[in-house]
Amino acid sequence: MEAHSSEVFVIGLTVFFLACIIGYYVVWSVTPALHSPLMGVTNAISSVIIVGAILAAGPQGFDTSKIFGLIGVVLASVNIFGGFLVTYRMLSMFKKKTNKKKENK
């Protein structure tokens, strides 16, 4: 890490505020009918925290940090698979049904 630590923090802060603004506009454009899938997706992507868990679980050998990392990987994976799958299930219900409906009867 060559950059000065306060510089790194300021870059992070810049990224943070810009991302908040993007989030604000993108989320307001989501149609209210899809607010439940929105929660499913955000739940899945917030598990990108798995990146940190993998770094902790990465080194060979076994120490406290590695065990914590592996637990983190398991927890985040539950969410990633669960979140994307449940969203997929919800979204496939929102397909156009105009043709299918007659068969259903």
């Binding site: 790194v8 870059i11 989030g23 989320v27 739940n43 925290i49 990146v51």
Partner: peptide, 15 residues
């Protein structure tokens, strides 16, 4: 100091 986590966290937080 991971921008991906910061961006994603901010998106989810805003949402």
């Amino acid at each position: 100091s991971n921008n991906l986590l910061i961006i994603t966290g901010a998106l989810v937080g805003a949402s």
